[in-house]
């Protein structure tokens, strides 16, 4: 019975941990927003803007990835 409670708590915890992915999502959305605006204003710079956008997205995504790591640790390790 206590094992079941622990298992349920793990699942809830993992789900809660992934709430952090919200920040990453917002960040990625903002960077894409800026990049698209920049490309729309200066289509010639599309290559450079895309490169920097992907880098920025990667950094923003890192936060969401920490959440994923925590969720995976809760689910599979503890």
């Amino acid at each position: 019975m206590s094992g079941d409670i622990v298992a349920a708590a793990k699942l809830i915890g993992a789900g809660l941990a992934m709430i952090g992915a919200l920040g990453g999502g917002i960040g990625i959305g903002l960077s894409a927003h800026g990049a698209v605006q920049g490309i729309a204003r200066n289509p010639d710079a599309a290559g450079a803007v895309q490169t920097n956008m992907i880098l920025g997205i990667a950094f923003a995504e890192a936060v969401a990835i920490y959440c994923l790591v925590v969720a995976l640790l809760i689910l599979f390790v503890f």
């Binding site: 990667a58 995504e61 890192a62 990835i65 920490y66 994923l68 790591v69």
Partner: peptide, 17 residues
């Protein structure tokens, strides 16, 4: 060190998900 973590889990997370 956090680069190692973010590199590995970014790729793993995206493809596993």
């Amino acid at each position: 060190f956090s680069k190692i973590l973010s590199f590995s889990f970014r790729l793993f997370g995206n493809i596993f998900a």
